[in-house]
Amino acid sequence: MTEKQPSILFRLDPRSGIAPYRQLVDQVRRAVETGRLRGGDQLPSVREVVGQVTINPNTVHRAYRELENRGLAEGRLGLGTFVTENPDVHATEAGNVELIRQLQLWAKRARAAGLLDDDMLELLRQILNRDERVRS
């Protein structure tokens, strides 16, 4: 076979408790952050990913859609999905300067109050776990 090498090799840990689509999104994001994937690189097709890891094709579609929504990738009709030129991996953070500032302030106060890092993470998790993702 003369298939070209894929730009990224995905891994899947079914025991991690992290949704498979999320694992794919995170792996692309990290590859972009570390420069292993660059703007214009083509992501493997859904067929290729299904050949790499044992995963439901709908999950790969879902991950690619999420990457597009975050501006990390773009679908080109009939060609495939590509990493965006000049992908801004910190776009989310840049848009939330004020939130980050507040969080830093909160972390400082929490530490002064004697909370350990794990306590703070657990608190945040508790709050997030109550959120409103429930389908009505």
């Binding site: 067929r47 299904v50 044992t54 995963i55 439901n56 094709p57 790969v60």
Partner: peptide
């Protein structure tokens, strides 16, 4: 089992 499930997923994809 991995090979079998991958064959199955490729069928679903294609």
């Amino acid at each position: 089992r991995e090979d079998l499930l991958r064959l199955l997923m490729r069928e679903v994809a294609e």
